[in-house]
Design a protein around this nucleic acid. Structure first.
Length: 283
DNA sequence: ACCGGGACCTGGAAGC
DNA sequence: TGCTTCCAGGTCCCGG
């Protein structure tokens, strides 16, 4: 569910509400969300208890709470994860997985219906957890190198959409913003990377950056109550989408009906006129 | 190293 | 009213 803009909204909320607070303990209600933690549920709870949150950082779709400027709690929201700041007496969510009472009097909660997301203790990970060292920088990172990403894209034969979703190449882009970036760049997602011009590759990367920045200004994209900020509120960038989720609706540029096709076990939306299907490579 | 496909989960909505 | 099928914003891992 959440892509870079939605995770950044959550990061900002955590920064406002949690930095400076001490974690009194962790109640792990389901083991799966901490499956990546080698310490296991009890070890995780023990490692974070008594620690003070000194910063909240993000790269791509991952976020982490720095603990005492040295270690971290690394998190990913997967398809349905939420980080909520509640009062301890608030009713427990149906899919509440981990609960952190804080000395500020608030209750930090990780809620995740499908449990593709998770939390783990990252020793030494305050600045950048080693667990995500393989993830590429995201387009909002000051040190993001669009030229280098474009170069790599053009060296590979795999489809440009698959490459946009490859978190080791560029992080933060998911299915919604990949389709939106491709629509803006007038490129079909199945175009092989090595058949893009340098200008086209740079353009689609720039469109991804721009659309994610605009979505962030609107509080992210929400279709339902599954994606919410730390206060449980939805974003409203869904009103500004041009391709994603708009099957059979007219293209905002040319009026042709937006099409939906299955691609990579998911859906891709595109304008058949503005984003023509690439011709098959000559063998 | 890259490539494509399936697995991992739960539950809401649509179809019969 | 049921039951079944499809669909969902992500990643990881496998064999080729």
């Amino acid at each position: 569910m959440p892509e870079l803009p939605e995770v950044e909204v959550v990061r900002r909320g955590l920064e406002t509400h949690v930095v400076g607070a001490r974690i009194l303990g962790a109640e792990v209600l389901h083991a799966r969300p901490v499956r990546r933690d080698p310490l296991g549920p009890e070890g995780f709870a023990q490692a974070v208890a008594g620690r003070t949150v000194t910063a909240v950082r993000r790269r791509g779709k991952y976020f982490w709470l720095a603990l005492d400027d040295t270690d971290a709690i690394l998190g990913h929201l997967g398809m349905s994860g939420q980080m909520l700041v509640k009062t301890p007496g608030a009713p427990l969510e149906r899919h509440l997985r981990v609960r952190f009472p804080l000395d500020s009097g608030a209750d930090l909660r990780f809620v995740d219906q499908r449990m593709f997301g998770g939390l783990s203790y990252a020793p030494g990970g305050a600045v950048l957890p080693s667990e995500i060292a393989h993830i590429g920088r995201d387009p909002l990172d000051a040190e993001f190198d669009a030229e280098a990403v474009a170069r790599r894209m053009r060296q590979r034969s795999s489809a440009v959409k698959r490459q946009l979703l490859d978190q080791t190449l560029v992080s933060g882009v998911g299915n919604i913003y990949a389709d939106e970036a491709l629509w803006r760049a007038r490129l079909h997602g199945e175009r092989p990377g090595d058949r893009l011009t340098r200008a086209q590759a740079l353009d689609v990367i720039e469109q991804a950056r721009a659309v994610m920045l605009q979505a962030l200004d609107q509080g992210g994209t929400s279709f339902d109550a599954l994606y919410v900020n730390v206060n449980g509120e939805s974003g409203y960038f869904d009103r500004s989408l041009h391709a994603y989720g708009r099957e059979d609706e007219p293209c905002d540029r040319c009026g042709a009906a937006i099409r939906r096709v299955a691609f990579m076990n998911r859906s891709s939306y595109f304008c058949p006129t503005c984003q023509p299907v690439p011709r098959r490579r000559r063998t």
